[in-house]
Amino acid sequence: MIDRQLPAVRGRWRGDRSVAEIAQLAGVSQPTVSKVLNGRAGVGESTRRRVETLLREHGYRRPSGPPGTAGIEVLMSGMLGSIAIEVVRGIEDVAATRDLTVSLTDIRRRAAAGQSWIEPLLLRRPVGVVAAFAGFTTEHLELLDASGIPVVTLDPVVDQHRTPSVGCNNWSGALAATRHLLDLGHHRIAVITGPVKDLSSRARFDGFRAALDAAEVPYDETLRRSGVFTFEDGRDLALEVLSHPDRPTAVVCGDDLQALGVYEAARLRDLRIPGDLSVVGFDDIEHCLWAGPPMTTVRQPFAELGAAAARLVLSLAAGDKPSQHRVELAATLVVRASTAPPAAN
């Protein structure tokens, strides 16, 4: 017997219960319900009948329009505004060539309001999804796959199994940044990274280490700090490494916000940039030009990343098999006034 004691929740998707609740009532997974709802194969006949009965009882209908009428859906959460604009601009440039629209869902805002984002997205049935946020789970991927909606992740935080992704070459970017400091004569170089579980953070740290190893400069673990990509973490972690008895003469940062935090830490320690401390960021957000002095950083081509993700997801939607699982674009070192040779002792 099927337990129907769950409280009804009106106004969700196309019935009086969410897909998750229908799945619980039927004793199956959410992707299975999505497959039945969208008329896809891969579900046993008895299970399909059980799910279809529940869908009818709760007022669900298969989507009436053709798939893809909503264009490309972009999922973001907490991304810096200037970066988000560039990413969306690149996606829109590609979408416009196909007469497609681009929709943006702010996951953080919907979560803060206690709202679901996956079911409204399934209702819109976009041609494809570009996901640029850290909370994309295997369950989300299965639901979208069951609905026939392809997904491309943008610089994923963790390995998303078989999901195609687009990003920049974080390793080579960090390698170039560190080599630049080594070529200036720095040997006491601190590194502030992002979260240790973050794939891009690990790649940037590996690039940093590779540059030191190639130059036969010893790596000092006491000059490494890991945090999150924020101004506050950059400031606080830099204050720690700048208190080291043998203070570093340069700092490589995981992103530009951390690097701006290092600027503040240097100010608090009465250190001049670049006279006493050279600083390199990563991303090349617009704030780098406004910093005093303008910041040396590694530029990520955000508009090009968005365009590459859009081309890839549209290719998947057309049924093409991607020639490569991961698309990587080049990162470019942009040298400005925050780096200089170390002061003579």
Rank of each mutant, 00 (worst) to 15 (best):
G275F: 01
G319L: 12
M1K: 10
L6G: 06
T339Y: 03
P164Y: 06
P245G: 15
S103D: 15
R311G: 09
V158W: 02
E221V: 13
R267E: 12
V298T: 13
R311E: 15
P156V: 14
H161T: 11
Q30N: 06
P301H: 04
E232V: 13
G292F: 02
R299G: 03
P126T: 07
A309W: 00
P245Q: 15
T249I: 03
A291D: 06
S201C: 05
I189P: 02
R209M: 06
R225Y: 09
A95V: 07
R247F: 15
D256N: 13
P126Q: 09
V158Y: 06
T163S: 07
V191N: 07
R62S: 13
G71V: 02
L289Y: 03
G90E: 09
A8T: 15
P294S: 14
L182Y: 12
T153N: 11
V196K: 02
R125S: 14
R40N: 11
H140C: 04
G11E: 13
W117Q: 11
T297Q: 11
P67N: 05
L37G: 02
T101W: 01
V191Q: 11
P120N: 15
V130D: 03
V158H: 10
A210P: 00
T69W: 10
I72Q: 04
F133A: 12
S18H: 05
A331N: 08
S46Q: 14
L316Q: 11
C288Q: 08
N170Q: 09
I22C: 04
H186N: 13
A265T: 11
V127C: 04
L100C: 07
E216G: 07
T101D: 08
G227H: 14
P31Y: 02
A23Y: 02
S338G: 06
E142G: 02
R50F: 03
G11N: 14
H161V: 12
M295V: 13
I107K: 01
A343H: 04
E45P: 01
G59M: 13
D283N: 13
G292S: 12
G292D: 15
Q324D: 14
E304F: 01
S165W: 11
A344M: 04
G39E: 12
L143Y: 00
L242W: 09
A131G: 05
V127Y: 04
V335Y: 03
V36Y: 04
D220E: 15
V191E: 09
T222Q: 12
N38Q: 12
H244K: 14
A211D: 10
S165L: 02
A23N: 03
T138K: 03
N38D: 09
T230Y: 14
V152M: 09
L223F: 12
G281N: 10
P150Y: 02
P322R: 10
V217I: 14
F205H: 14
V334N: 10
T101S: 15
P120T: 11
R204A: 05
R108M: 05
L314Y: 01
R14E: 10
D159H: 10
E92P: 01
G135F: 01
L237S: 08
V313F: 01
V279K: 01
A95D: 04
A20H: 02
F229S: 05
S323Q: 15
A112V: 04
R336I: 11
V217K: 05
P245F: 14
V228I: 12
E86I: 06
G167K: 03
R50L: 08
E304W: 00
R267G: 06
A337M: 07
G227F: 04
S34G: 03
L6P: 00
